[in-house]
Design a protein around this nucleic acid. Structure first.
Length: 257
DNA sequence: AGAACCGCCTGCTTGC
DNA sequence: TGCAAGCAGGCGGTTC
């Protein structure tokens, strides 16, 4: 599932590939993509990421806003021949970008004007004080809070589990029970883990691939996600798997307090 | 108001 | 081997 490091990988690749290039044509293959009907093509000014969202800025002020959700991928291909599960194509003079998405959860919409950024992206202009003021007293388990996109943009299930493990804090803790020192630990761990994820071009556990169809390398860094029953690399305890809010959480009961 | 739950989707895994 | 049920989960909408 594309989270911040995966989307940032695409963001950087797209910046290099399509900035300043004109979109010559687009095609929608899936009627479910209602946000991009009757799109009039234009020239790309730049590409940005906000949380897990990719924004392709056009010179006329419009933006193509793409969210990949669970299984969405963006694939560069010189040939205009449709890959399996493709739902949308943007054609450029030397190739095409396809939205490939087997489960059809991804969304694309056109924004007429630039929307104001919320400062909740840990790898951009994150505002710690604002975060603590809004989130630190919530009565919600910490793991679910880390995945709340309004609280922190970009963290999904994999990185939430890894961040908590590195912080040595239990996913079951209520947000309101954390000390300032523990919050600092979370911010620090999160930044390090996300940075490493970006350097490794994402985590290819299942179907994540970059713009050129290549796997990332970050799966070798995972300490808890998908590691249930194995020994914890920190303390030698056993990695547990539980459900929180209908989703799997992986953690070490011994060293995550 | 805030937290919990549901439904959208389809490929893959599991069990009989 | 084959088929059906179960599972994966981000997020918007609904319910509690």
């Amino acid at each position: 599932m594309p989270e911040l490091p995966e989307v940032e990988t695409l963001n950087r690749q797209l910046q290099k590939k399509i900035s300043g290039r004109a979109i010559s044509a687009t095609e929608v293959y899936d009627d479910k993509l209602t946000g991009i009907k009757n799109f009039q093509a234009g020239k790309v000014a730049g590409v940005e990421r906000q949380g897990k969202t990719i924004c392709i800025r056009l010179e006329d002020g419009r933006s193509i806003v793409i969210h990949l959700r669970m299984t969405g991928r963006l694939l560069w291909q010189e040939s205009a021949e449709r890959p399996r599960h493709s739902r949308w194509r943007a054609g450029f003079d030397k190739g095409n970008i396809f939205l490939v998405d087997p489960r059809r959860f991804a969304t694309i919409r056109i924004e007429r004007t630039k929307t104001e950024k919320i400062k909740n992206d840990l790898m951009a202009d994150f505002d710690e004080k604002l975060f603590l003021a809004k989130q630190a007293n919530r009565k919600i388990n910490l793991k679910t809070l880390l995945m709340d996109q309004k609280a922190l943009a970009g963290i999904g299930n994999i990185y939430a589990c890894e961040i908590l493990h590195r912080s040595g804090i239990s996913p079951l803790r209520q947000a309101a029970s954390l000390s300032i020192r523990e919050w600092k630990m979370i911010f620090d761990s999160a930044k390090r883990i996300l940075k490493k994820g970006i350097e490794n071009r994402g985590t290819s556990i299942s179907d994540w691939r970059d713009l050129y169809g290549l796997q990332g390398e970050n799966q070798k860094e995972l300490k808890v996600y998908g590691q249930q029953g194995k020994y914890c690399s920190t303390c030698g305890g056993t990695i547990n798997r539980i459900k929180q809010g209908g989703r799997s959480t992986f953690y070490c009961h011994t060293c995550q307090k």
